[in-house]
Amino acid sequence: MPDACPHTLSAGSYLLGLLTTEETDEFRRHSTRCALCQWEIVALMPGALFLQELKADVLAAEQRLCTDRPVLAAVAAREPRWVPGCRTA
C-alpha cells in the first residue's frame, strides 16, 4: 500500500504509554498532521481503554481472591506474576 504511513505502527504503543518521552512527543507531533495515524488512534482506542481498565483491576486485586472477576481470573491463571499477592484459590 503506497499511501501507508510507517508511523501507524507506533499508535498502539503511544496509546498504552509504552513510548519514551521523546518518541511520544514525536508521534504526537506527527499524528496532528497525519490522517492515517489519526484513524489508527481512533481504531485502537477501545482496546487501549479496555487494557487500561484491566490493568487497574489487576493492580487493585493484590489482596482479593482473583476469582471474584472472570476476566481477572483468566489473567491471573495465565500470568500469575502480573498479580503480586493474588490468590486464585
Rank of each mutant, 00 (worst) to 15 (best):
M1Y: 03
P2K: 02
P2A: 10
P2E: 06
P2G: 08
P2D: 11
D3V: 06
D3W: 02
D3Y: 03
A4R: 08
C5T: 04
P6Q: 05
P6G: 04
H7D: 10
T8H: 00
L9F: 00
L9T: 01
L9P: 03
S10Q: 12
G12F: 00
G12E: 12
S13K: 06
L15F: 02
L15W: 01
L16Q: 06
G17W: 00
G17N: 01
L18G: 12
L18P: 01
L18N: 08
L18M: 09
L19P: 00
L19R: 01
T20M: 14
T20D: 15
T21E: 15
T21V: 14
T21M: 15
T21F: 14
T21Q: 15
E22W: 07
E23G: 12
E23H: 02
E23L: 08
T24K: 09
T24Q: 14
E26M: 10
E26Y: 09
E26L: 12
F27A: 10
F27P: 11
R29G: 09
R29W: 10
R29K: 15
H30S: 09
S31N: 05
T32C: 13
T32S: 12
R33F: 03
A35K: 13
A35V: 08
L36E: 13
C37P: 07
Q38D: 09
Q38W: 06
W39N: 15
A43F: 13
A43Y: 11
L44H: 09
M45Y: 01
M45V: 03
P46A: 04
P46N: 10
P46E: 07
L49I: 04
L49G: 05
F50V: 07
F50G: 03
F50K: 12
L51Q: 11
L51K: 02
L51I: 04
L51W: 08
E53S: 12
L54V: 04
K55G: 13
K55Q: 13
A56F: 05
A56Y: 08
A56H: 08
V58Q: 05
V58R: 04
V58W: 01
A60C: 12
A60P: 07
A61T: 00
E62D: 08
Q63R: 06
R64F: 08
R64S: 11
R64G: 11
R64V: 06
L65A: 14
L65S: 08
C66R: 00
C66G: 15
T67D: 08
T67R: 12
D68F: 01
R69A: 07
R69D: 15
R69G: 13
P70I: 00
V71M: 01
V71N: 00
V71I: 04
V71H: 00
L72Y: 02
L72Q: 02
L72M: 01
L72W: 00
V75A: 09
V75M: 11
V75H: 06
A76E: 05
A76W: 08
A76G: 07
A76T: 06
A77H: 11
A77P: 11
R78W: 11
R78E: 15
R78P: 03
R78G: 14
R78V: 14
R78M: 10
E79K: 10
P80A: 07
R81M: 06
R81C: 12
R81A: 13
W82Y: 06
W82I: 03
V83R: 13
C86Y: 02
R87D: 06
R87T: 06
R87I: 00
R87A: 04
T88N: 04
T88P: 09
T88I: 10
A89G: 12
A89L: 10
